[in-house]
Amino acid sequence: MSAEPRRLLESDPWHLLDDARTVLAVHAHPDDESLSTGALLAALVSSGTRVVLVTATRGEEGEVVPGAIEDGDARPLEEIREGEIDAATAVLGLAERHWLGTSPALAPGAVPRRYRDSGMEWVREGLAGPSADAGPDSFSLAPLEDEADDLAALIAHVRPDVVIGYDDEGTYGHPDHVRAHHVAVAACGRTGTPLVQVASGGKGEGSADGGAAGGARPRAAWRDLPEVAETVLHAADSYRTQLTVVGPVPGGIAIRHVGGQNDVVALRAGLRTDV
């Protein structure tokens, strides 16, 4: 095989995942693993891959679906969302789940860190931006070096063949998603671990074997994953404080977010390896 075909084969994101025994998925909040990568993670698990999840924040700034928390339940939202993410990861079949800043996702010798949900504000439909209320302990504003140190420590502990993270658009621009991208790039560069990025704009970009047309960004490689529909539905339904599952629709699972926005959790995934 010539050098060029070999280089393309080694950089193909699906080839990297198909050959991986262990993958580490990096996400910003509880529910992101199910909404952004539920189909991908469920498909990996069903193929025998060991999937480990690390989540940066506990989603403290999330709104709550009316009636989702029983009257008299005085638990803080982050505690309730921790129960939701435990349920979702069990449905998806993930092997381990960790919080960034808590051992083993903590730099050697560091005091445990708790990265707070940064919140967000809508810039326009489908695009989020930073919240004016984000504090210095928020994930998007905390020192990037500390966050990368913590993720590098988890990579050393888990020893994944591949890390899965967001691309630089952070799915819809949420500042915590964008920061998670930069943290994953830094930690993977430091540890020499391949990083596969989940393409933003998954509802219609490219095709199952293609990607976005035009622009400088390399095209994403897409796969349809309809066989995991039931798993994705039940994983999404674990997050009743954040969304309501409407039901299956062609190509995905229809949901309604806490703010009333209708959305579809896609049963497909687009991946790229560029950083």
Rank of each mutant, 00 (worst) to 15 (best):
Ala3Leu: 15
Glu4Cys: 01
Glu4Leu: 13
Pro5Ala: 06
Arg6Thr: 09
Arg7Gln: 13
Glu10Thr: 07
Ser11Pro: 01
His15Val: 11
Leu17Cys: 03
Asp19Gly: 15
Ala20Gln: 09
Val23Ile: 12
Ala25Val: 01
His27Thr: 14
His29Arg: 14
Pro30Asp: 11
Asp31Leu: 05
Asp32Lys: 13
Ser36Leu: 06
Thr37Gln: 07
Val45Ile: 01
Thr49Gln: 04
Val51Cys: 04
Val52Thr: 15
Val54Gly: 09
Ala56Gln: 07
Glu61Thr: 13
Gly62Ala: 15
Val65Arg: 14
Ala68Asp: 14
Glu70Cys: 06
Ala74Lys: 14
Arg75Glu: 10
Pro76Trp: 10
Glu78Asp: 08
Arg81Cys: 05
Gly83Val: 08
Gly83His: 10
Glu84Gln: 15
Glu84Ser: 11
Glu84Pro: 05
Ala88Leu: 06
Thr89His: 11
Thr89Phe: 00
Val91Trp: 00
Gly93Ser: 03
Ala95Thr: 14
Arg97Phe: 03
Trp99Val: 00
Ala107Asp: 01
Ala107Tyr: 01
Pro108Ala: 08
Gly109Glu: 10
Gly109Thr: 12
Gly109Lys: 12
Val111Asn: 08
Asp117Gly: 07
Ser118Tyr: 03
Gly119Gln: 12
Met120Arg: 13
Glu121Cys: 05
Trp122Asp: 02
Val123Gln: 12
Arg124Cys: 06
Glu125Phe: 03
Glu125Ile: 01
Leu127Phe: 04
Ala128Arg: 14
Pro130Glu: 13
Ser131Leu: 05
Gly135Asn: 07
Pro136Ser: 14
Phe139Glu: 05
Ser140Gln: 01
Leu141Gly: 00
Ala142His: 09
Pro143Val: 07
Ala148Thr: 14
Asp149Thr: 05
Ala153Asn: 08
Ile155Arg: 11
His157Ser: 14
Val158Met: 09
Arg159Val: 10
Ile164Pro: 03
Gly165Lys: 06
Gly165His: 12
Asp168Val: 06
Glu169Val: 10
Glu169Gly: 13
Tyr172His: 14
Tyr172Leu: 04
Asp176Met: 05
Asp176Glu: 11
Asp176Ser: 08
His177Ile: 03
Val183Pro: 02
Ala184Ile: 03
Val185Ser: 07
Val185Ala: 10
Ala187Tyr: 10
Cys188Gln: 13
Pro194Phe: 06
Leu195Trp: 08
Val196Ala: 11
Val198Gly: 05
Ala199Met: 02
Ala199Asp: 04
Ser200Trp: 11
Asp209Ala: 12
Gly214Asn: 07
Gly215Leu: 07
Ala216Trp: 04
Arg219His: 00
Arg219Asp: 02
Ala220Lys: 02
Ala221Arg: 15
Asp224Arg: 12
Leu225Val: 04
Pro226Ile: 07
Pro226Thr: 13
Glu227Tyr: 01
Ala229Pro: 08
Glu230Trp: 00
Leu233Lys: 14
Asp237Met: 02
Ser238Trp: 02
Tyr239Asp: 10
Gly247Glu: 13
Pro248Asp: 12
Pro250Thr: 15
His257Gln: 15
Val258Met: 09
Val264Asp: 08
Ala266Gln: 15
Arg268Gln: 07
Gly270Tyr: 06
Arg272Thr: 09
Asp274Tyr: 08
Val275Ser: 14
